[in-house]
């Protein structure tokens, strides 16, 4: 995310519960509980997002949990229990031998498309879920912010 681009920032010490939909990239250094939709989400070290995340690009060095859908994910930090990650590409780097870059709890990863699967023959991979907000969700931010 470039410094010249407008971003929604949830600063360290801030906690937001509810739905956050943004056309700007979002940076979370605090905590978000609920639903988050944005072009890009950056969860900083110490930041946490629990809930439904639907973004194009996700970069997380913090803690994530819930249902996570993205086109591209770069992951470190922590993935909590009961989390499902769906992405076209997922990158987890090795930082150093014997060092944990990311801690996975009990979770599910569905990454990439099976190039060998027969198309539309019933044996292929399930289609990626569309990146649409759930019906009935408000289009505005409804969360309450604690400073």
């Amino acid at each position: 995310m470039s410094d010249n681009v407008k971003r929604t920032i949830i600063e360290e010490g801030s906690e937001l519960t509810g739905t956050l939909k943004s056309t700007c990239d979002v940076v979370v250094s605090g905590k978000v509980n609920g639903e988050l939709q944005a072009p890009a989400l950056n969860v900083s070290q110490g930041g946490a997002v629990h809930g439904n995340i639907k973004v194009t690009n996700l970069h997380s060095e913090g803690e994530i949990a819930g249902q996570i859908e993205a086109d591209k994910i770069e992951l470190s930090g922590r993935v909590n229990d009961q989390t499902t990650i769906r992405a076209n590409t997922l990158e987890v780097k090795l930082s150093a031998p014997e060092k944990l870059q990311v801690v996975f709890g009990n979770c599910t990863l569905e990454v990439g498309k099976d190039k060998d699967a027969a198309p539309a023959a019933g044996g292929g991979e399930p289609a990626q879920k569309e990146n649409k907000p759930p019906q009935g969700q408000p289009q505005q931010q409804q969360g309450k912010k604690k400073d």
């Binding site: 591209k72 590409t89 997922l90 990158e91 987890v92 780097k93 090795l94 870059q101 990311v102 996975f104 709890g105 009990n106 979770c107 599910t108 990863l109 569905e110 990454v111 990439g112 498309k113 099976d114 190039k115 991979e125």
Partner: peptide, 13 residues
């Protein structure tokens, strides 16, 4: 874990 972009995963961890 380490994953390179382009890999295919259907993992339950």
């Amino acid at each position: 874990f380490a994953f390179e972009p382009g890999c295919f995963l259907r993992l339950k961890i």
